[in-house]
Structures are given as C-alpha cells and as structure tokens.
Nucleic acid binder design. Structure first.
Lengths: 159, 159
DNA sequence: TTGCTCCTCACGTCACGTGAGGTGGC
DNA sequence: TTGCTCCTCACGTCACGTGAGGTGGC
C-alpha cells in the first residue's frame, strides 16, 4: 500500500503543495487527501505529523490518470483502486518480463497485459459509441431548428 | 412540478410497476422513488397513500433520457432537473410557437432553442474527444504489446 | 389463501464539501 | 512579523443502498 512514497523525490524538479497540485489537475485538496486516505493515492510515509504534503511531476500524472478514469468509467473508488492496482501490477510484470529468460514466460506476461488493455478498450469504446449516438440525435435536432429558422426569411444563421 | 401525472394513462398499453420499469431501464426502484421525491420525475398525484405506482411507455422513455444525461454529463441531480425543466420549457415554447403570429416571435423562440441545443452539443463533444484521445492511447499501447508478442515467434495473435 | 412485489419510514454509506481551530514556510 | 496555504478533526450533504414492518394485487 505505501511501499512507494507520494513524495516522489523532488530533487531537481519543483515540489508542488497540495493546492498547486489540485489546481493543476482540476480538483480540490480535500479530494486528494481523501484519495490518500482510502489508499487510491500513495501517502508520504516519511511526512511528519502536521507537515505539508509535497508532490512531483509523476504525482501530477498519476492523479490525472486516476481522475480521468473516474470520470470516464464511473466506477466506485474501490473498484477504481483495484484497476489502478492492476495497472501497477502490469508495471511489475513489465520489469519481470525484462528479466525473464524463456519465451514462454515472456509470452504469458504479454498476453496478460494485452487482455488487460483490451478490457479497458471495450469499456471506453462502448461509452464513446453511446456518446456518439446522443451527439447525432442532438445534431439532427439542431438541423431541424435551423431549417425552421431558414424558412422564416432572409437573415442567414451564422455557421 | 406535478401538473402532469407520472401515470401516463395506460389505457390500452400495459401498465408497468416500479420494479418492471427499473429493470427495463437498468436502475433500481429506490432510484426511481428518489427521483420522484426530488422532483426530477413527475409523481402520480392521484395515487392513494400506499398504493402502487404505475407507469407507461413514455415514462420509460423519460427515465431513459434522464439516466443517460446523468451518466453522460456528470451533473448534480439539481442541475440535471434544471436541464430537464429547460427541455420541458422548450416543448412549451414549441407549442407557443405553433400559435404565435409574428415572424419575430418565431425567430426568438427558435434561436433560444438553438442556443440550448448548441450548449449541450459542446459539452458532449468535448467529452467524446477526451474519450477518443484515451482510446487512441490505449490502442497504441496495445499495438506495442502485440508487436512484442509477434517478435517472440511463430504463433500469430488472433485479431 | 399463498407468494410476490409493492409501500413508507429511517438509518447506513460513499465521495466528498465545509467550517473550526491551529501550525508551517516563502 | 505578516499573510497565505497548509494541517487535522469532525460534522454536513448528495445520491442513493438496505433492512424493518406492513399492505396490495394477479
């Protein structure tokens, strides 16, 4: 859960405070603290009681990913945490793969990763198709309204 | 608020009970009762205390619309209720338009409707574009994984 | 009459929002 | 030192979930 720190070594890079991070990714400090509390984001274990949280660029990226998945998938945060865990697991598999010797091991690792990606793609594509259908309905509606406006007389409606 | 009844005259058509309606649209009876409670769905005013709610086909359609907008837009239910109100208002404007005499009135009504549709289109298109970008990222990731699998040897991965 | 679904409270939960009162760092 | 943002409780809210105990219709 807390093996890696949320404070990702801001050695050279500028360290962000929670408010800056929140503004960068379009959320609130409270949401970030809550995600840390439920284990969806890693917490800085070496942070003293009452001390400020500090974040680096990779924390920005990780939080962006989490928020995007939350909005796109509409899962509970528990399920989302499981999904993010699976993603991390894939990263582990990836490193394992780098070291693995036999072709069979490599194949197994890659096929697991492929199945994982395919599953996410299916969910996202279904959502996009649903959105597309709704957009088409609205466009047809718009054309009908514009047609009626055109019938009313001279002034063309600006595109 | 309660001018029209949720029980939309199931004269000939088969009347649905709340559990059937819920299953048809993919939600729960509790959600339907809650939406009625906050005014997002109309309530049957002529329903006696403790009597069963009954629904018709247009209630199915209305609830489907509400649920789809909820999932697609991610608004609060208060904002969603306002939007649905605006939709109903447009229907009123539509009937008003049927009776209106002057070209200017008609133009005004149509332009209001057009602005309303355009606003919804913009939100939906932005969402779809974001989804599309995520899908593209995942597809690229998948191609990379499949490339690595192909490198491993003979057996082609089924498309 | 027996099941089944329905009814109305009413408390629980999830994902945060929102102060209350206090401390930390450019 | 002065502001500003940060900190930790902790209670509030929104959108329902989930029984508890009772009634209704094929």
């Amino acid at each position: 859960m807390g093996a890696t720190s949320g404070v990702s070594a801001p050695e050279e890079e500028r360290a962000l405070r929670i408010g800056e991070l929140a503004e960068r990714v379009g959320t609130t400090p409270r949401t970030i603290r809550y995600y840390e509390e439920i284990g969806l984001l890693p917490s800085a274990e070496d942070r003293g009681q009452g001390k400020h949280r500090l974040y680096g660029e990779d924390d920005v990226q990780r939080l962006r990913d989490v928020l995007r998945l939350r909005d796109l998938l509409g899962l509970s945060l528990r399920d989302l945490a499981r999904l993010v865990e699976a993603e991390a697991e894939r990263a582990v598999l990836r490193r394992e793969w780098e070291r693995s010797r036999t072709t069979e091991e490599r194949r197994r690792v890659l096929e697991t990763a492929l199945a994982n990606v395919d599953e996410r793609l299916e969910v996202l594509e279904a959502r996009r198709d649903e959105l597309e259908r709704t957009i088409e309905e609205l466009r047809a509606k718009r054309e009908r309204v514009r047609g009626r406006l055109a019938e009313l007389g001279a002034d063309p409606v600006p595109a």
